[in-house]
Design a protein around this nucleic acid. Structure first.
Lengths: 259, 259
DNA sequence: CGTGTCTAGAGTACACTGTATCCATAAGAC
DNA sequence: GTCTTATGGATACAGTGTACTCTAGACACG
């Protein structure tokens, strides 16, 4: 717990920046910048050149100030990136308007999240490791969990479902954006094909899978595929069908789930 | 495709380092270092201080040389990190010895992969974005796909199953290692609880989920939960049960799957 | 209105980072 | 023994994030 406390300490500045309103000074020169403008400049640079391209110098240049001026607004680069992430993911969608039940809503939730990462691939890098989470990001989790309300799942299970879908979305986005080609599927095939050339004997299963995929025309959609598998599994759980690794008595269902 | 070619160009040095044997010189001073020693030094530094702690200077100091000496062995830092990743994930497990069928094997595959990331959390950061993939990493994919051989899944589907599981494993590992506390579940609860303090009205679903999880004693295991959901969904697919978003005629099964 | 206080932005400095390049020496080929 | 090659160190440099100081702008207050 001491270690956890230390971690919290490290992120205090980012948390304050993300969650607390910025004090407006009553004296002194009028600020020419704003947190929003700074974060937006950072996002634009990252969208073009990736996260590594975001330097205080470049952000400042984009805003026609010297880099040290940025420190009047953000305590450091880490905090700037945290701000960019929260602005990049944007506000969570309102899933109430999605027709259907929990499944359709979760599917839509996942698709839209994928869209965020697809638009801002740098956010994948920026959201690894110890970091502060902002209001928008937490809003996405809120909508995901809310979509599962009334399904009969326990609190921890709902969080886990959201996390599993998020992991999948990230994985596919990661794969797709790692190569500047059209789709995640194309990206994987291209990457693997290149790697396997001349080494087919070492990786027979992957080679066979790639060959088979090529024959089938590779129309498979990795994102939808994975979402469907996950949601199928979740649906079984909600319906009270025991998964195959546990004895049937493990789960007791109360009432009929709404779909 | 031109863009894809450019990407391949960028990674050529890393690919050569990962995949091609190192030429042994016939003249000149004997090398005091090796690729393995350098990568190991990098891994040890990263294990303690994260990926950012890995600098050429620190790696060199750990090996009692100056940093420029490293460039005799690796073309640059990016390539060093690629080497570290491949060594960090290590050789893929032999799943043939795992009793049971495809499901048990995949489950074991996922657990072991999680273990790799848990031991080397920096690898999560190091495996985002454009990068070169090494023999060990490809070996893990090979084992995952091989576990699905004979299930009747198509080539692309097998790759997608592996990718979905990998995404989930990464997500849970990411969440758990982002805070230096015991488990991924504890990490999520702690993080969210802190964020929600005083903001409960804004995120009612998450608050309710956390409260419910606390009541249930939070014994849920996020990793196993997600793996089970995914594998349940895959099992339905293999068994030829249509998922609920598609018409029943979509899939035609040939023969009985082996489990 | 004048004075005092506070704050924004620029300028300067510095430790650190990755990498290009040159030099001296060690080790093997011939 | 001479020549060639390769290792490691030394030096330099552009770039990075951030600490700190100074100047001038803007507001509070009497």
């Amino acid at each position: 717990m001491a270690a956890a406390g230390a971690e919290f300490e490290v992120n205090a500045k980012a948390l304050a920046l993300l969650w607390e309103p910025r004090a407006t000074p009553s004296r002194g020169p009028r600020p020419t910048l704003s947190l929003e403008a700074i974060a937006r400049a950072g996002i634009e640079i990252a969208d073009i050149g990736g996260l590594a391209a975001v330097t205080m110098q470049r952000v400042a240049a984009a805003l026609d100030v010297t880099k040290m001026a940025l420190y009047r607004y953000v305590p450091g680069k880490v905090e700037l990136v945290a701000l960019m992430v929260d602005m990049g993911v944007g506000e969570a969608p309102d899933l109430d308007a999605v027709p259907g039940g929990w499944r359709q809503r979760l599917h839509e939730w996942a698709l839209r999240m994928f869209d965020r990462f697809w638009r801002h691939p740098w956010a994948l890098e920026a959201t690894v490791g110890t970091r502060a989470i902002g209001p928008n990001e937490l809003g996405w989790l809120e909508q995901g969990v809310a979509a599962l309300a009334g399904t009969g799942l326990g609190g921890a299970e709902m969080l886990d479902v959201a996390a599993t879908l998020l992991g999948h979305v990230r994985g596919v986005a990661q794969q797709g954006t790692a190569m500047a080609s059209g789709t995640p599927e194309r990206a994987m095939v291209t990457t693997l094909a290149g790697l396997l050339r001349g080494r087919e004997g070492r990786y027979p299963a992957v080679v066979a899978a790639l060959d088979a995929a090529a024959e089938q025309g590779a129309q498979d959609k990795a994102l939808d595929f994975g979402i469907a598998r996950i949601l199928d599994g979740v649906e079984l759980l909600i319906a009270g069908v025991p998964d195959r690794t546990r004895p049937p008595a493990r789960r007791v269902r109360r009432g009929t789930p709404r779909t």
